[in-house]
Amino acid sequence: MKLAFLSNSAPAAEEGLGELVARYGNVDPMEADVIVALGGDGFMLRTLHRTQELSAPVYGMNRGTVGFLMNEYSCDDLLDRLAAAEEEVVNPLEMRAMDQSGALHEALAINEVSLLRAGPQAAKLRITVDGRERLEELVCDGCLLATPAGSTAYNYSAHGPILPIGADVLALTPIAAFRPRRWRGALLPKTVTVRFEVREAAKRPVMADADAIQFNDIDWVEIRSVPTICHRILFDPGHGLEERVISEQFT
């Protein structure tokens, strides 16, 4: 089994990289059977984006903090663990965003696309789903659209629902909604296109974020799921995303 090891710059990750490469060797990711990512969840997301054109799945080993997308770090029995690993497949969201200068930006997000106020005043957002207006004006700190894989991240902190892995739905969740005050968001079919239009954009600036890829002074954003892009993630048996999502609801 040919392995490609990637790590972030944290000392613990670099130390693990040295140990694993010394024991198992290292190849270019384009030649690998499995790509092993050493770091935290942020680095795992960057690795998935970086390797999305490659056929090799990604196996994460936690050398960060939370490690929701990662497996426990150990230098021993790695080949046996990889042979027994269970695969999860997730589809990203595609974001298209136009800024106030007329520039069009595009990015992919595995966890969520979020719109966040970038000034002292609350944002005002108009929300349409498949071209139909669903909310004329949401006054808020922001709003996000999350995948099942990302539903336990920012979405959950914003009091959004946790979605089962494999569910064909997305979570639309407001962040500190002021008007309508009691609006808690919506569950939407995975096939929809969601559009946010920023009202009073010059007075109430808004930024858009797709897995930490940020664009400022946004005028509108469109988001849809991309079923043609499949991220393959490996987990130790009994510790896959489905089990982690269920466990998260009982902690």
Rank of each mutant, 00 (worst) to 15 (best):
N8P: 07
G16F: 03
G18S: 15
R23D: 04
R23F: 01
V27A: 07
V27R: 04
E31C: 09
A37T: 11
L38C: 09
G39L: 09
G42T: 05
F43R: 01
L45R: 07
L45W: 01
T51V: 15
E53R: 11
S55F: 03
S55P: 10
P57E: 08
R63T: 05
R63L: 15
V66N: 02
G67R: 01
F68I: 06
L69H: 01
M70Q: 13
D77I: 01
L78T: 03
L79G: 06
A84N: 06
A84Y: 01
E86Y: 07
E86I: 10
E87D: 04
V89C: 12
P92C: 09
P92S: 07
L93C: 09
M95C: 11
R96V: 14
A97H: 02
M98T: 09
Q100H: 05
Q100A: 11
Q100I: 13
H105C: 02
I110E: 00
N111G: 05
N111C: 05
E112A: 05
V113A: 05
V113W: 04
A118S: 09
K124W: 07
K124Y: 05
R126L: 10
I127R: 04
E133T: 11
R134G: 08
E136S: 12
L138T: 02
C140V: 12
L145Y: 10
P148M: 13
T152C: 10
T152M: 07
T152W: 08
Y154M: 06
Y154A: 13
Y154L: 12
N155M: 06
N155G: 08
H159V: 09
H159T: 13
G160I: 02
G160E: 02
I162C: 13
L163T: 01
L163E: 01
P164S: 14
I165G: 06
I165M: 12
G166L: 14
G166K: 14
G166S: 13
L170W: 02
A171I: 03
A177I: 06
P180N: 14
R184C: 08
P189R: 12
K190F: 11
T193F: 07
R195Y: 03
R195N: 04
F196W: 14
E197V: 14
V198A: 05
E200C: 07
A202Q: 14
K203F: 08
K203V: 13
V206I: 04
M207F: 09
A208W: 00
D211C: 11
D211H: 10
A212I: 00
I213R: 13
Q214S: 11
F215C: 11
F215Q: 12
N216R: 15
I218Y: 00
E222I: 03
E222G: 05
I223Y: 01
I223C: 03
R224P: 03
R224T: 09
R224H: 13
R224K: 14
R224I: 02
V226M: 12
I229E: 03
I229R: 10
I229S: 02
C230N: 14
H231R: 08
H231Y: 15
I233W: 01
D236E: 15
D236Y: 10
E242H: 11
V245Q: 05
V245K: 04
V245R: 02
I246W: 11
S247W: 04
E248G: 03
E248F: 12
F250C: 11
F250I: 13
